[in-house]
């Protein structure tokens, strides 16, 4: 399996689409931060918060996460890399596990610009705001920026960043079984984008139904896992981490059960 991971990392290093994705998230993170900086100063029309939100982490990852799965997984069906791996003695389980590790790593890579931007923003001491629309790193940025942070709070911020990152990875991990089953990049991106919109709507439903909220919060799409801030309790952060990890493992199991006996065409 380590060979497969190493080979995938080599491929990632040579891949132009991955560099493009990283460039997109870097530019998006900068635009998001600049807009969140200029809006409270009145230098930008506050009605443009919708546009600012478009560049935010939650929105960008819901599209690029699926694109990443398409590039990494569907691309290997196209190039017949999976065929060669199976034919030369790699087990399907090791292929799935290796691919998941690299997929999670690559999502972390394209999230890095948001993580770094958030770190910088929190260090500036300036006020940031995107009106009422803020999720994930943008939410943390707009909630915590401008405050003087103690060492303990900095550690908490680091753990929140880790949790939000893992929540995002868990959210897009549903693309892994999708990509292994559908094999078509367009289908994976379209279905996941539709799915992420549906999950956002279900999030609203959970506000009006307690039992649904309880069920929904067992997934990385529910709860307040993308709204973690310094005000969040440690238990919430641990819950976000645990549920995300369990969800990723569940996706691995689903993928394995689908791919274990499937024909590789």
């Amino acid at each position: 399996m380590l060979n497969l991971i190493q080979a995938d990392l080599y491929k990632l290093r040579k891949s132009a689409p991955i560099k493009v994705l990283l460039a997109i998230t870097t530019i998006s993170a900068i635009i998001m931060a600049v807009m969140a900086y200029l809006i409270p100063q009145g230098k930008i029309d506050p009605n443009l918060t919708g546009l600012g939100f478009m560049f935010s982490d939650v929105n960008v990852i819901s599209i690029l996460g699926a694109v990443m799965a398409a590039v990494l997984i569907c691309g290997d069906f196209d190039s017949r890399t999976f065929h060669d791996a199976v034919a030369s003695g790699s087990s399907r389980a090791s292929i799935i596990l290796g691919k998941t590790v690299v997929f999670c790593f690559s999502i972390l890579c394209i999230l890095l610009p948001y993580i770094i931007t958030t770190g910088i923003v929190l260090g500036t001491g300036f006020k940031f705001s995107m009106g009422s629309v803020a999720v994930g790193f943008l939410n943390m940025m707009t909630t915590e920026a401008g405050k003087a942070l103690t060492a303990a709070e900095m550690w908490k911020i680091a753990s929140i960043i880790l949790s939000i990152t893992l929540v995002y990875i868990a959210q897009v991990s549903i693309c892994i079984p999708l990509a292994f089953t559908l094999k078509k990049p367009v289908l994976v991106v379209a279905i996941y984008y539709g799915f992420s919109i549906l999950m956002a709507q279900l999030g609203r439903l959970s506000e009006s139904s307690k039992w649904f909220d309880r069920i929904f919060s067992c997934t990385p799409y529910g709860g307040n896992y993308t709204f973690l801030t310094l005000a969040s309790e440690t238990g919430e952060i641990i819950k976000a981490l645990t549920i995300s990890l369990i969800f990723i493992i569940l996706m691995l199991i689903v993928t394995y059960s689908l791919f274990r006996k499937s024909e590789i065409k």
């Binding site: 060979n3 080979a7 080599y10 491929k11 890399t81 060669d84 030369s88 790699s90």
Partner: peptide, 8 residues
């Protein structure tokens, strides 16, 4: 190289 790494 990719396939060489893949096969260890």
């Amino acid at each position: 190289r990719l396939h060489r790494i893949m096969r260890g």
